[in-house]
Amino acid sequence: MTEFVAVLVDGIVYASWLFIIAVGLTLIYGVMKILNIAHGSLYALGAFAAVSCANAWFAQGYAAMGSFAMLAVAAIAVALVFAPIIERGLLRHMYGKDEVVLVLVTYALFLILEDFIKLVWGVDPLFVQGPNYETPYSLLGNFDVAGLTYPNYNLLLVGVAIVAGLALAWALNRTRSGKLLLAVIHDREVSAALGINVGRMYFVTFTIGAFLAALGGALTAPTVSVVTGMGAEVIVMAFAVVVIGGLGSLPGAALGALIVGMVRAAAVHYAPEVELFSVYFVMAAVLIARPKGLFSGAEVRKI
């Protein structure tokens, strides 16, 4: 019983974490048809910025609870600085190119940002820590389930994931700009002809996606030691989630994250030996059964 509950809780926590990162990836893909490898760099940038901001906050001797605000500030700052540079400076000149070329453009970007991070923050692992060794991770206290202790910070992750998912769904389906965006997704050229400012739509989408990546990184920062190369580890997991769910699908990302989270937690508890490739195994199995992922719309055939 304990193990079952543990798998459930661990799985949900891990899924929430994955979802926050993957949802931005699927959003950018859905709108812009770019599988953004640099999403991993934005995640890493968010984490590094969060460490710097939170530690600066602690260094000023302000109330520890304020460090949570610093995490959000870091994510917003990263999105506002890097999204315009990347989208306006580079990607906008590449639209219309082959999907694969775009993937590689973001891969080149990923390599550049990787060294950029190294130049700015160095190679030492960094972590968030206050003067009395407190971290935002332990500040919120713990809760107990079936004899296991979990920090309440995990609940925060779950909460943020749910809020992010619902907010995006609401914005897409219930607001005017969301509906315009759906039109852009459906047919970029016709939307442009009808007077929708597609360039701005792309810019806003990319900024939101970048913010979600950076937020994922910022929320991860207090739980890990922030180290160069952390983006590379995450991006493949996020790809798996998005592909399992169906590229560009919001509910798909949620379901994909849940599946990956549960499978991973179950593997750790019942068969630690196979944890390493369980995720890819699920990805292959899902793609074999549903070639375009779990949630995928029908495509227009062009003759």
């Binding site: 580079l90 453009v105 891969y107 080149a108 390599l111 550049i112 990787e114 060294d115 950029f116 130049l119």
Partner: peptide
């Protein structure tokens, strides 16, 4: 220290 950046820029 920056060979990745060199590769990335070359590629771009």
């Amino acid at each position: 220290n920056t060979w990745q950046m060199v590769l990335g820029i070359t590629m771009l």
